[in-house]
Design a binder for these strands. Structure first.
Lengths: 206, 206
DNA sequence: GCGCGAATCAACCTTTTGATTGATGCTTGG
DNA sequence: CCAAGCATCAATCAAAAGGTTGATTCGCGC
C-alpha cells in the first residue's frame, strides 16, 4: 500500500486527484494540504511514501521551499511535483530541491499513477521530455543571475527606468547599467526588453 | 435536474469537477470535452443546461471562441467560465462572448455549486469581486489597443527593437513610433518596458 | 596569496527610444 | 459632409539606454 499526501491549493484539483487515486487498490490518500507549510507538517506527522506537490500556492512560500524542508525529515517521503509550469528554472529548481519526479497537470491519469508508483519505488519519475529538457539545459541555468541581478531584472520587467531602479535599490545608475550588462551577457540579450523576454521564457521571472 | 457539460483540457480537473458535481442529487454531468470545438459539438448535440468552460486549452481556439459560437445555438446552454486567469481582458472577453458566469479555479466546491445553480436559473454567476472588477474597469478596457497596436506591443514584448518591428510588419520606423505613442497613451505608460508590464497586467498580452 | 565572482562606481561615446508636431488617406457612422 | 479612428509617414530634438573601458573592495575557495 502506497501512502500519499496531496498538496495543492485548488480544491477541485485535490478532488480530481482523490478521484483518480482512490480507485486504485494499492494507493491510499492519507492527507491533504492546501499550503506548503501544511504539506511539510503532514509529511512529518503522517510519514507518507509519496507527496504530490504543486509549485505555486498563492503564498510567498512555494512547493520548492516545502520540498527542500521535507528532505531534512528522518523518513522523507518521495516528492512528486505536479504543476502547470514547465520552464527550465521550475524543473531544475524542483529537482535540486530533491523532487523525485516532475509531472505537468495535463498528464493523463495513467501517467500520473505510473509516476506515483515509480516515485514510491525510489525511481526517477521524470517523463522523457522533462528529463531531456533537464540534461540539455544544465549549462544555461548554471549561468543564472546573481541575487542583485535578479532584483534589477524584476524591476526592469515592472517597467522601471535605470534611474527608478537606482533609487529603489539605493545605488547609482552606473551600477544599474553594470548589472544590466552582466544580465545581457548571461541571457544573451542586447536590450532590456529582450532580456525580460528571455528571463520570462526561462522562468527566471514570472 | 441540471444537465452539465464539462470543458477542460486537464483530465485531473475534469475528474475533480466530476467528483464534486456527481455527489449532488440535482446535478447531472452529461458530457465532457477537452477542446473548445468538442465543447461546442457537445453543447449542440446534448443540449445541456450549463457548460463549465475553461479559457485556455493549449490550442489556438479558446474557451471565449467556443462561448461565442455556443450563443448562436437554438437552445444555447448557460456558459460558466472556470479558469485560472483573472485579468480584465479575460473577464471582459468572456462576458462579452456571452458567458453567464466567471469563476476562478481556486473557488471552493460550495461556491462552484452555487454558481452552477445560479447559471442554470438564468442568473448572473459573477462573484462580487469579479463583478466589481468588471464595473470598475469598463472605461480602461474600452481603450483597448487596435489590432495593429496589438501586433506592435506583442513584438515589443518579444524583445524587438523598433527597426525589427518595422521590418517584421513591413512599415517604417516612424509608423512604429506612432503606434507606440498611441499605445503609451492608452496604457498610461511612458516607455516600452512599462507599456509591456501594463499590457501583461491587463491580460492584453500573456 | 591568488583568482574569481559579486557589487559598486565612473567617464565617454554611440545608438535607440521617446516627445512633439505635422501631414495624408481610408473607412465608418451620424 | 463631417468627425473620429486607424494606419501610414516625416523631421527635429531631448532623453534614456547601451557599449566600452577602467577601477576598487569584499568574500570565498584553493
Amino acid at each position: 500500500m502506497i501512502r500519499i499526501v496531496i498538496a495543492d491549493d485548488h480544491p477541485i484539483v485535490r478532488a480530481g486527484l482523490r478521484a483518480v487515486i482512490d480507485s486504485e487498490a494499492d494507493l491510499d490518500i492519507v492527507g491533504e494540504a492546501s499550503t506548503p507549510s501544511a504539506a511539510f507538517e503532514l509529511a512529518d506527522s503522517l510519514t507518507p511514501d509519496v507527496i504530490l506537490m504543486d509549485l505555486q500556492f498563492g503564498t510567498d512560500e512555494t512547493g520548492v521551499d516545502a520540498t527542500t524542508r521535507i528532505q531534512q525529515l528522518p523518513s522523507a517521503p518521495h516528492v512528486l511535483v505536479l504543476t502547470n509550469y514547465d520552464t527550465d528554472m521550475d524543473i531544475l529548481g524542483a529537482v535540486e530541491a530533491g523532487a523525485a519526479g516532475y509531472l505537468l497537470k495535463d498528464a493523463p491519469p495513467h501517467e500520473l499513477l505510473a509516476a506515483i508508483r515509480a516515485a514510491a519505488a525510489g525511481e526517477s519519475a521524470l517523463g522523457p521530455t522533462i528529463a531531456s529538457r533537464l540534461l540539455g539545459r544544465m549549462r544555461n541555468t548554471q549561468n543564472v543571475l546573481s541575487p542583485r541581478e535578479q532584483s534589477v531584472i524584476s524591476l526592469v520587467a515592472d517597467g522601471a527606468t535605470n534611474a527608478d531602479i537606482a533609487r529603489s535599490l539605493h545605488i547609482s545608475e552606473s551600477t544599474v547599467k553594470s548589472h544590466l550588462v552582466h544580465i545581457f551577457t548571461k541571457l544573451d540579450a542586447t536590450s532590456r526588453t529582450s532580456a525580460v523576454a528571455e528571463a520570462r521564457s526561462r522562468g527566471i521571472i514570472r
